[in-house]
């Protein structure tokens, strides 16, 4: 029952649509306005000397620093390193976590055996494993990827498993009455039925992967945005810290948008 787009709307409807558009415009204007105002105020306070730019930096200085980084310090190399660690950590956490969740859904015994481990591992601050990871995996990007995986993995397992287990009992009964095997129930009901959970898990995992990779770079790294931030902090170059943070913000947003696009493909109804 699709709406005919060429259909003539009544005057009331056009008025209603106009109202909706106005509201959307207002939301955008306010959202961007707050950002602009904050940046302006920041710059103003820095320019008038209320803020010590040595500590607070300023929007202008951040832009200059980013331009500088691109010219002299190979910003894109650092972005590449962090992006590689994050994306790889994210993918491994998602694929491995979903697979483990599937196994735990499949076998009641396995689930009951591993549930306490999951609870403990979930509660454990993964950063505490830092020293162990470094000793075992060295000071390369391997350690950082592992950190990103660890942070995302447990959340993925717990989220996906509860999604699988929430499958409607009546739908399972229906499938069984049709003579479906457990594998068919999994493939035709449980997996397609958890697409929404999967997408929300992806969104959480994007955040987790960034936490993991940047935290990993804080611990041990020779390059990357986290490295720039830590380095900037150590030599007291707040401009660098702020600039790297801004770039990080932009990248995280970009990755979220990619996931949102994936959502559009996966969830049609």
């Amino acid at each position: 029952m699709k709406k005919d787009k060429t259909k003539e709307f009544s005057a009331d409807h056009i008025k209603y649509l106009g109202k909706l558009r106005k509201k959307t415009a207002l939301v955008w204007a306010l959202g961007l306005g707050i950002l602009a105002a904050a940046l302006l105020l920041w710059q103003l306070l820095a320019d008038t000397g209320v803020f010590d730019v040595f500590i607070t930096s300023s929007p202008k200085r951040i832009v200059v620093t980013i331009a500088d980084l691109i010219k002299n310090d190979n910003l894109f190399y650092h972005i590449g390193v962090t992006l590689y660690e994050t994306v790889l950590g994210f993918l491994i956490a998602v694929v491995l976590g979903t697979f483990i969740a599937l196994l735990l859904w499949w076998s009641d015994v396995l689930r009951r055996v591993f549930e306490p481990y999951l609870i403990v591992l979930n509660a454990l601050p993964k950063i505490a494993l830092g020293p162990i990871i470094i000793v075992w995996c060295g000071s390369g990007s391997k350690s950082i990827v592992l950190m990103a995986v660890l942070i995302g993995l447990i959340v993925t397992i717990i989220n996906m498993l509860s999604g699988f287990l929430a499958t409607d009992k009546d739908k399972i009964l229906l499938m069984r009455s049709m003579g479906a095997t457990k594998f068919q129930i999994l493939r035709k009901l449980v997996i397609p039925g958890t697409m929404k959970t999967f997408v929300s898990t992806l969104k959480i995992d994007v955040g987790m992967a960034w936490i993991g990779s940047v935290m990993g770079e804080y611990m041990v790294s020779k390059a990357g945005l986290g490295y720039l931030i830590v380095y900037g902090g150590q030599v007291f170059k707040l401009d660098l810290v702020m600039a790297a943070t801004v770039v990080l913000c932009l990248l995280a947003t970009l990755m979220y948008l990619v996931v949102a696009a994936v959502e559009k493909i996966l969830i049609k109804n």
Binding site: D168, D170, K171, L173, L174, S177, M178, L189, P192, G193, M195, K268, N269
Partner: peptide, 12 residues
Amino acid sequence: GYMLQKDQLFPW
């Protein structure tokens, strides 16, 4: 052929 209270059509 088994039919349940709700239609249980798969929304996807």
